[in-house]
């Protein structure tokens, strides 16, 4: 490896982004296969063995199609929203430790950075809903904002529980602490586990996944904020959604499930296994559950999760004090 920090960062960044986009492409295949099996179908079978080349076919198809910008839309914002969504969704990966040595950068406020970037995700989606000048899109965008102001607080508070337990805001530090003292999902009796559940739930809301796909709500709002989007622009939104699901799983695994820590197998394999398991769980939920209403999500978050996570934080603080 070279010693020039900029060149090194460029190579590593390009490697991480390439790996991520490849993973995103094939988890669309995985999701469609699982969805098929859950609904007693086969999923993709025609392109390549087991339909494995389906993502390539989809990519070529969406690039060949023509991007249509509606006459009444705000063209600049309309074009801006999809790449912005993807950039924010991919951005959190910069601080996720995939193994002790393999992470772009172990900045000392990694947890905050990841929360901040993924918290911004609701804005480009709102921009898309507004710019389309379509009633369904605008309603979807407004629902996205409603969702954003609901899940954000419990998410941040539940992600602070591992910070209290580990005494550090760096992602690498959180994992190292868990490698020495046990995973937070089981250590710190009850507190870590409940915080993990809350984090997972709010991550679903952030990624617009069922049971919280309220902005998209294809049975009510056509496709919500993405109604007017076609071809590659729509694909960017889809890629962003899958990238977010994947990275949210990775962050949950890092904060609560010990990240790369595990016996026998190499660290990177453990990280992939844990992330994959959480992603499978998310997919399973998607094809099993119903959708909540906007006000139901708001009630759930504000009347239950906010006080719960505040008490969890206090519990974590008390436990840390008693344990040391």
């Amino acid at each position: 490896m070279t010693n020039d920090p900029w060149l090194r960062a460029l190579l590593e960044g390009a490697a991480v982004v390439t790996a991520l986009m490849t993973a995103v492409a094939w988890i669309t295949w995985l999701e469609r296969k699982i969805a098929g099996r859950i609904q007693s179908r086969l999923g993709p079978t025609m392109v390549g063995p087991f339909g494995l080349l389906q993502p390539l076919a989809d990519a070529v198809k969406s690039m060949q199609k023509e991007s249509i910008v509606p006459r009444d839309a705000d063209a600049l914002l309309f074009w801006l929203a999809p790449p912005l969504t993807l950039a924010l969704a991919l951005g959190t990966a910069a601080v996720i430790p995939f193994s002790p040595g393999l992470l772009a950068s172990d900045v000392d406020i990694g947890v905050l950075y990841a929360l901040a970037l993924s918290g911004l995700l609701s804005f480009p989606i709102w921009i898309a809903g507004w710019a389309s000048n379509n009633k369904y899109s605008l309603l979807g965008g407004m629902r996205m904002v409603a969702q954003g102001i609901s899940y954000e607080i419990p998410m941040v508070l539940s992600a602070l529980v591992p910070v209290v337990l580990a005494g550090t805001l760096s992602m690498g530090g959180v994992v190292r602490h868990q490698a020495e003292h046990g995973w937070f999902v089981v250590s710190a009796p009850g507190v870590g586990f409940v915080a993990f559940l809350v984090f997972l739930l709010t991550a679903l809301a952030e990624g617009n996944r069922i049971p919280f796909d309220i902005p998209e709500a294809e049975s009510e709002l056509v496709a919500g904020p993405t109604t007017e989007y076609t071809a590659i622009q729509w694909s960017l939104f889809a890629a962003a959604e899958y990238a977010h699901s994947l990275l949210a799983s990775a962050i949950a695994a890092t904060l609560f499930l010990g990240g790369w820590d595990g016996p026998v197998l190499p660290p990177a394999v453990w990280m992939v296994l844990k992330t994959g398991a959480l992603f499978l769980l998310i997919t399973w939920l998607r094809w099993s559950l119903l959708r909540l209403r906007s006000d139901q999500l708001m009630s759930l978050c504000w009347k239950l999760l906010v006080p719960l996570t505040l008490l969890l934080l206090l519990g974590a603080g008390t436990w840390v004090t008693l344990a040391t």
């Binding site: 920090p5 900029w6 090194r8 960062a9 460029l10 590593e12 960044g13 390009a14 991480v16 982004v17 986009m21 969406s62 690039m63 060949q64 991007s67 074009w79 999809p82 790449p83 912005l84 969504t85 993807l86 950039a87 991919l90 951005g91 990966a93 910069a94 601080v95 772009a104 950068s105 900045v107 950075y113 071809a231 590659i232 622009q233 694909s235 960017l236």
Partner: peptide
């Protein structure tokens, strides 16, 4: 530095795909 560079690369992915399309 790696975070900034990474963000720049992540931002370019969407633009590159739009260009390719």
């Amino acid at each position: 530095i790696p975070v900034l560079v990474y963000l720049a690369i992540a931002s370019s992915v969407g633009v590159v795909m739009l260009g390719a399309a």
